[in-house]
């Protein structure tokens, strides 16, 4: 498992566009949004979180869009299948590496921008925690979408996985409110972590079966 993790990290590290691109787009969106509308700082502080949440959703999809397609197209998945007989480990490794390289930095960027738009410094770590957990859930969900549409274009993946991503967004919204109002953060974050753990354990099984079907 550690071997898969290090190999995936090695590959992603060398694909600059794959991990730096989504992060730059997120920064661009978060900078451009306040500049593009005429709004008071007071109003902006009130709904800037929504911008962070929506950009997190979009960028998570973007970051996982081709998570399996490269290995599928160049024949690496066939070689992995011959050695491993299933794709559970490689799927789990891919998702965790993407979360580590893209998801966590996205959460960090979101936290910094939320601080710049009215959140107190003491609340920033809380924002970072719920954004990080959210990226773990979203990356799992969108990786499933990507596996589903591996040879059919990414639109099918969006359509198939978006309904699964919406509950995660609702949960993230709840988490943001607990930070804003200073109540119930622990309960919501534990709930989110629980959901993330279950999704991370189960989704690779489903994705592995999906990839096997595509390979046939």
């Amino acid at each position: 498992m550690i071997n898969f993790f290090s190999l995936e990290a090695f590959k992603l590290r060398h694909k600059l566009r794959a991990w730096l691109g989504p992060l730059l787009i997120m920064i661009l969106v978060l900078i451009a949004f306040p500049l593009s509308i005429d709004i008071s700082q007071y109003d902006l502080n009130k709904f800037y979180f929504s911008v962070i949440v929506v950009s997190l959703l979009m960028i998570s999809f973007l970051a996982t869009e081709s998570i399996f397609s490269e290995d599928y197209e160049d024949g690496s998945l066939e070689q992995i299948h011959l050695e491993e007989k299933d794709f559970y480990k490689i799927t789990l490794a891919k998702i965790l590496v993407h979360v580590f390289f893209i998801g966590i930095p996205m959460a960090l960027i979101g936290s910094i921008f939320s601080f710049a738009n009215g959140v107190s410094f003491a609340e920033v770590p809380k924002i970072f925690v719920i954004l990080s957990i959210s990226t773990l859930i979203l990356f799992n969900v969108f990786a499933f979408g990507s596996a589903l549409s591996i040879n059919k274009g990414s639109m099918l993946g969006v359509v198939a996985s978006l309904p699964l991503a919406l509950p995660a967004i609702v949960l993230l919204g709840r988490g943001v409110r607990t930070v804003q109002y200073g109540q119930g953060f622990f309960e919501v974050s534990v709930l989110m972590a629980g959901v993330a753990l279950i999704v991370t354990a189960l989704m690779p099984i489903i994705i592995s079966a999906t990839l096997k079907t595509h390979l046939e």
Binding site: K11, H14, K15, E70, E73, D74, G75, S76, E78, Q79
Partner: peptide, 8 residues
């Protein structure tokens, strides 16, 4: 398919 990575 060659199973090699073009960016490496």
């Amino acid at each position: 398919k060659n199973a090699i990575k073009h960016y490496l």
